[in-house]
Amino acid sequence: MTLERWQKMSEWPMVVAALLFLVAYSVQVIADLPDNEGIWADEVVWVAWAVFLVDYGARLWLAPNRRRWFVRNLHELAILALPALRPLRLLRLVTLLKVVYGRAGNALRGRLLVYVIASATMLVYCGALAALDAEQNDPEANIKSIGDALWWALTTITTVGYGDHYPVTIVGRLAAAGLMVAGIAVLGVVTASIASWLVESVSTETAARAKEVTDAAVAAIEAIDEPLEDQIRSLSDQMARLTAALEAGRKGDS
């Protein structure tokens, strides 16, 4: 078993585990269930965490250079080990984005568009969820509902930043920092995609118009050439007849 084969085999199981974690975590955060009512959600979260832990251990074991892989993936160990970083387990949904990108068709622009829309939607929702989890039980917080959290996440990722809602806890600010950085990347891709589409559209239209002008010019030249060819042919015939007449006259004089 190689690392690449394990990652390919575990792709869909990890997607399912991440989605189950998202659903259970959403119920826990949005409903703010008491401990005695949210047992099933806790169990789902723990099962998903166990799947993440098995995947982490398998990838570490199968890595060609375990020490290097361990150092490069310290963030995953921190996410698994520290309860305060539980919202960051939503990063496992990046696997789902890879699957969406791979199933979006062959056209590069179509795949990119689907990927960007999915990324932006997931960023807004996961950022809102993480911020609400960190903020809703703090007495000084102003993000108290999923509506407030989604509004804050949307204004943050679009760099509008009205300032009517903002995180006050450390974990909430960490979630905000991640949302800001990821939002800049997503907006950059959106801007580049729009610019590429505009440039390609203008280039295509310019090329089409240039072809029309060229075809019209060629047709006009061909229309002019035909009468000229006829006139040249007629003049050639007249010159031939005159030459023949002159030669005949010379022979008569002699």
Rank of each mutant, 00 (worst) to 15 (best):
W49R: 11
V99S: 04
T155M: 11
R111N: 07
I39A: 15
D35F: 04
L93E: 10
L93G: 07
L97E: 08
L91T: 14
N142L: 02
P139F: 09
A41W: 14
R89W: 13
P64D: 04
L96G: 11
D35H: 09
H75D: 15
N137L: 14
D133P: 00
A120T: 01
Y101S: 13
R67S: 13
R103C: 10
T156R: 04
G110A: 13
V71L: 13
V29G: 10
G102E: 15
V160P: 03
L77T: 00
I157M: 05
I39Q: 14
V116R: 08
F70I: 02
W49G: 08
L74R: 09
A84N: 03
R92K: 07
D42H: 13
N106R: 10
M122K: 03
W49T: 09
L80F: 02
V116I: 15
K98S: 11
A120Q: 14
R59V: 06
P64T: 05
L96T: 12
L150W: 05
L88W: 11
A134G: 12
V47F: 14
Q136R: 08
W61G: 06
T158Y: 01
G38C: 11
T121A: 00
A78Q: 08
D42M: 12
A131C: 08
Q28T: 15
P87K: 04
R68Y: 06
A78Y: 08
L62S: 04
R109H: 08
A120M: 12
L62E: 02
L129M: 09
G102Y: 11
A63E: 09
L108V: 07
V44D: 07
P139Q: 09
Y115H: 10
W152A: 14
A149M: 02
N36V: 15
N106A: 10
T158P: 01
H75C: 11
R92E: 14
G38M: 11
K144S: 07
R89F: 06
T156L: 13
V47D: 05
Y101V: 08
E37D: 13
V51P: 03
Y101R: 13
W46D: 15
T158N: 01
R89H: 14
N36M: 13
P64F: 10
G147D: 00
L108G: 08
L90K: 00
T155A: 07
N106H: 11
V51Y: 11
V54S: 06
L85W: 03
I143K: 02
A130G: 09
Q136W: 01
W69H: 08
P87T: 07
D148H: 12
A134D: 02
A78N: 06
Y101L: 10
I143S: 05
A128E: 07
A50Q: 00
R109Y: 08
L108D: 13
V71R: 15
